[in-house]
Each structure stands twice: as C-alpha cells, then as structure tokens.
Amino acid sequence: MVLVRGPEGLLADRATDRVVALARAADPDVEVTRLEGAQYAAGVLGVTTSPSLFAEDKVVVVGGFESGPDELFADVLEYLAAPAPGVVLVLRHGGGVRGKKALEALRAAGVPEIACEAVTSDSDKTAFVTAELRRAGRRADAGAVRALVDAVGSDLRELASACAQLVADTTGMIGVEVVERYYGGRIEASGFRVADAAIAGDAGQAVALLRHALATGLDPVPVVAALAAKLRTLAKVAAVRSRGQAALRELGIAPWQVDKAQRELRRWTPEGLAAAITAVAQADAEVKGESRDPRFAVERAVLRVAAASGL
C-alpha cells in the first residue's frame, strides 16, 4: 500500500506513475486498475483486489480518495487489516480532512506516504524549474529561471511543459534571451515585470506594462501581490544587510534574489519603503472589494511605488 497525499496534481501523477513503473519493471504484464473515489460503490475494492484465476499481480490506483463515500474508507480499513498478496494499492488523497480516520490508520500501520504539497512560493518554483532542467541534462542561468517563473509560474504543469519545450527546442545554456523569445509576451504581461519597473522608479515603463497586462487579461490582484512580494523582499534584506552574509542567508531567500534586492536598495530609503508599502497595502484592500475601480487602484499604486523609490 502507498499513500500519495497532497494537492499538487503533477507531483501526485508522477508519484503514482513511478509506483506503476516499478510494478511493471517487476512484471511487465501486471494489471493496472484505476478507481475514482467520487464514483466508488461499497465492496468494489474487495472485488478489484481479489485474486484472479491465474493469480496475476495487480496495481489498483484509487484517485480522489478524499472525495469518496464512507464505504470507501470502511473498505480501505478492512483491506488494511488483510492486504491481498500480489497487489499494490495506491491511494491518492488530494488534501483536507475527509477520510481522517482512514489516514490515521494508514499512518499507524506504517504505510509509505509520498507528500505532494502545493508549490506556491517563488523560491519553490525556481527550485522546481532548476530540477526539471537538471533532470533533462540542461542548465539555465538564474535570470532565465526567474523569467520563466514570471511567465508561466502560476501552474506547475505549465512550468514543466515550458521546461520540456525549451529542452526540446534549444541547445546549450538557457539564458534570458531564449526564455523571452519563447515566452516574451507572457513575461511582459506578468505582475513581476510591472513590479520590477516600479521598483526601479521607471513609472512610464511600469504603467505601459501594466496597461498591456490588464488588456491581455491579467487580473489586478496578482499585480498588487507582485508589488507586495517585491517590497517584502526589499524590506527583509534592508533590515539585516548590515549584519553580514550570515544574516542574509537566514532569510530563506534565494541568493540571486538577495543580490538583486541589494542592487535595488541603492535607490531606496527607509522612508521611501514605508511610503511604498503603505500604498500597496491600500491598493490590496481596494482591488479586493473596497474600490469600484480596481484597475485605477493598481495603476495609482504603481505610480506611488515608482515615485517612492526616489524619496
């Protein structure tokens, strides 16, 4: 039995595929059966895992375990007490508290668990891209990884697909220019590109990018989130940089991000940071319901941040 748990679908798919591949390596003719928790009927697990006439090995994958009825949880507990020989049972649980009793019983019995937690932070996404490229025998410089995350980083499957495309279509070290050639339009429409221009004090470029982003469908909320993330990084680095490299490493921020923040801080004062953070906090409330015009709110915040960089 194997428990694959967590909301990150790509990682869960890969973990499941790996278990199936290992079973097929041991027996190329192994039978693979897939069940869906939401459509489960009482007793199906017992029927599916029961020995066949010729006692062939089996892999049974139960997807959406958390969506199953109480009968599924009861059948899994019954199966746990007496697992069928020659059967590998994979339970995929997407998260949440449904099936808690069954999950606790699986853990208590020592069933192996593969965690597939959501990859949401920029640092985790950049690590994912680097690992994807390394697995394919390729490398990208830090700027290219950052550009790719900015362009398609909202979804792990899209990131994996983008990495695969770059590996297939290019050779050598992957640089920023390569990423921009393939995903330039998406990069320009990203909140982080807008934020970079605002942080640099380039109000004209920031507003031009913002209007292009909004015109191509980008919601104001992630733009404000990108501004907030950039300012948080600046504030963290500014607070500890006088204490040396050891303190900077303790921030948990990627080295290239620290280096970039230190360069950007050359044009920022504590007063300017405070003014920018205040402007973004106001915009955050406005784009989430306190303003009738979220687009105006985010554009005003961009202009205020750009102006604050020179205070």
Rank of each mutant, 00 (worst) to 15 (best):
P7T: 11
L11E: 08
L11M: 10
L22I: 02
L22Y: 03
P28M: 05
E31T: 12
G43K: 04
V44Y: 02
S52D: 10
V62I: 13
F65G: 03
E66R: 14
G68L: 00
V76Q: 12
E78W: 00
A84F: 01
G86F: 04
R92L: 04
V97L: 11
G99S: 13
K101P: 02
P112L: 06
V119E: 08
A127R: 11
F128V: 06
L133K: 02
D141V: 11
A144G: 11
V149T: 07
G153V: 08
G153D: 05
S154V: 00
A162P: 13
A164F: 03
T171I: 02
M173R: 06
I174M: 07
E177S: 13
E180R: 14
A189Y: 06
S190K: 10
S190P: 01
A198L: 05
A200D: 06
A203V: 15
V207R: 01
R211E: 06
A215Q: 10
T216N: 01
P220N: 14
A228R: 08
L234F: 03
A235D: 07
V237T: 07
I253Y: 03
E264L: 11
L273K: 00
I277C: 11
A279P: 14
E286D: 12
V287Y: 02
A297V: 04
R300C: 04
A301R: 08
V302H: 03
L303A: 08
V305R: 05
A306N: 12
G310N: 02
